[in-house]
Every structure is written in structure tokens, then in C-alpha cells.
Design a protein around this nucleic acid. Structure first.
Lengths: 190, 190
DNA sequence: GTCTATAGGTGGATAGAC
DNA sequence: GTCTATCCACCTATAGAC
């Protein structure tokens, strides 16, 4: 990720917020102007086009999210607890009436550039790999059923979270996501 | 659903196509004008506002999708085969580089009216109920594991399909969705 | 780096003729 | 029902002063 100054970060904060709450096509440079207190022309100084803004925003989000996952891995020695904590991150997102930024941009795929799409692909693969390793760890710790395929579970788990967030969103509360996560994790346990 | 004439249906066809491929916020009345061959002002004759267009489009889509599910139920006596056929419908959508309309609108939730949101909620509940009944049927037919909770499975299955469609979309091909579906259905079988 | 000013286009929507 | 004509607000983006 290129280094960004404070103003650039504030711009990305606002862009990120609107992307996760309303969608990338549902906010404008004027919205950023109002929230950051900087003119639209100054936003163009940092991000010449909206597509470039999307790329910087996505790159930063993907890096931050990955860092959060690595932090969870450091903090929790239990594989199953790592999965629970990761799920908690997503539940928090829905509690704030937000959607996963990468899920949102996946839906608005035609509005972003190829480099941003590549970041989305990398994001989902990274999260899947992280889940796969947590599952494998949990199996070594005899806390997760041995007949579960860590890889297959990881692929489905990321998908089910993304989908459940979307459905939870329609109801304005996270219960749907929480139910899906609880059922899925309970099925894992020995 | 209110009765619509041929022109209204053509307008909705185009709006539906763009919503599923690009998103509701990513097309304009001018796009419809170009594809249908009718001026934007005439579109407003049928659908005074874009939000009303969204509502009619959603209502029609939800009805059509439900009819398709009932048709599958009529055609296939096997519960497990009903699930396979339902999954096939979603795979076809992704093959056309489309996303589920209701998933798309769930992401763009802030751009539609409350009545449309209610249709989305109804849609996901309807599909879940249909899946639940197919699972219960498959269990009576001794083709699906008895220890599976039909209700819990249905909730997760709809979520996993929506999420897997979104992730498959980033790669431009349906393999991710197909993998998730195959893994999920294989786990069901006795 | 941030501003004013503005270009040039597109958005949804309306009035009124036919 | 469909058209022409038009409104005006908004959009992304740029030029150039400070």
C-alpha cells in the first residue's frame, strides 16, 4: 500500500463508511466533502478518479482486515476460538448496519477497475486460507471433528458469512447472521 | 402483482438485467431508453419514479422465482433432486454474469423503498421455506441424513448460495459456487 | 495542499403537444 | 401512450489562483 497522509486517510474513512453502508455507487465526492470538510477538488488531488479512490480504499481495507485476522490468531491459541472471534468481527459489521466492503464491491463489480477486482479475489482467498488454518489447528487440538475438510469448510464458511450478512441486512439486525454462525460452528465441534 | 402491459414488461426486463449485472444504482433511464427503444419520459409514464420501478421489478422477480421453485417441486419427486435443481437455477444466473436480484438489492438497500425491502425479506423467507420442505421430503425418502435440521440447513443453504454467488462473481466464472453447492449437497446425502 | 470557479456530462423527473 | 423539449440538481473532473 502506498503511504497516505492524514487527509487521505480521512477521505478513505468516509468513502469506506459510505461504501459499506450504501454502496460505492451511492455516494459522491460531495458526500466526502461534507464529512471531511475538504472541497471536492481537493479530493481529486489525492485520488484523481473515483476508480482510483476505490482501489486505494480496497487495498487499505484488505490489509487492515488481514492484520485483524493475524491479531486474532496471536491472541487466541484455540483454533475454534479463532473462528468464533473472526465471526464476531463480521457480526460487529452488521450491527453497524454495514456490509463487508469486499462483498459490496463484488456486487458493484462493473464499477471498479481490474486491479480492484484482483484485490477482492485476494481478499476472499486470504480469509479462506486463514479459516482453513484455524480449522486444522482446532483439529490438532481435538476440538474440531476430524472428518471435516478444513479447505471445504473454509470455502463454505466465508461464503455463508457473506450471504448471511446480506440477508441480515434486509432485516436491519444481525440475528440471521448470528444464527447461521452459531449453527455452523456447533456442527464443527466434537 | 399489478397487471403490466408488454411495454412495461420490456422495461422491467431491461431494468432487471442491469440490476443483476451492474446494480440498481449503476443504470439509468437512458440505458432503458436505448435498450427498449422508448424515450425516458415514456418510462416515467409507467414508473413515475425509479424507486417505484424497483418495487415493480422486485415484485415481479420474487413472484417469478417462487413460481420456478414450485415448478421444480412439481417436476421432481425426489427431495434431494429438488435441491439440486434449485441450485442449478442459481448456477445459471452466475453463468450469465448475473447476481441474484434480491442479493443485489440487499446490498443497495438504502436506495430502495420500505415496500421493496419487505419484498426482499419475503423472498429469502420463501426460498428458505421451500428448501426446508425439500429437505424434510428427502429425509422421509431416506435420501437425506436424519440428524440434519431441515430448518437450520435451509437458512444456511440460502445464505451460502448468496455469498458464493458474490465470490464467484469476482472470478467471472461459477466454479466457486459449484464447489460450495456440491460440498454442501454431498454432506446431506446418506 | 487547498481553494474558487467552472466545464461538460448525466441523473431523475415534468409539461404539454400529438 | 409516446413524443419533444426542457428543468435543474447533481455528477466527476479540471484549470488556475493562492
Amino acid at each position: 500500500m502506498l503511504k497516505l497522509n492524514d487527509t487521505a486517510h480521512k477521505i478513505l474513512d468516509v468513502a469506506e463508511f459510505y461504501t459499506q453502508t450504501k454502496g460505492f455507487n451511492a455516494f459522491s465526492y460531495k458526500d466526502i466533502q461534507n464529512d471531511v470538510g475538504i472541497k471536492t477538488s481537493s479530493i481529486h488531488y489525492y485520488f484523481p478518479t473515483k476508480k482510483e479512490l476505490a482501489l486505494s480504499m480496497t487495498a487499505r481495507y484488505v490489509d487492515n482486515f488481514h492484520a485483524k485476522l493475524l491479531e486474532i490468531r496471536d491472541l487466541y491459541p484455540s483454533g475454534i476460538e479463532q473462528i468464533v472471534q473472526m465471526a464476531e468481527v463480521y457480526i460487529d459489521v452488521v450491527k453497524q448496519n454495514k456490509f463487508c466492503m469486499c462483498g459490496m464491491l463484488a456486487s458493484e463489480l462493473t464499477s471498479i477497475c481490474d486491479a480492484s477486482v484482483a484485490k477482492l479475489i485476494y481478499f476472499f482467498e486470504t480469509v479462506q486460507s486463514w479459516v482453513e488454518e484455524a480449522i486444522t489447528l482446532g483439529q490438532h487440538q481435538k476440538a474440531i471433528k476430524q472428518n471435516v475438510s478444513a479447505k471445504a469448510f473454509a470455502i463454505s464458511f466465508v461464503s455463508v458469512i457473506e450471504g448471511a450478512m446480506l440477508i441480515a441486512r434486509t432485516k436491519g439486525e444481525p440475528n440471521h447472521l448470528i444464527t447461521v454462525i452459531n449453527n455452523t460452528i456447533n456442527d464443527l465441534k466434537i
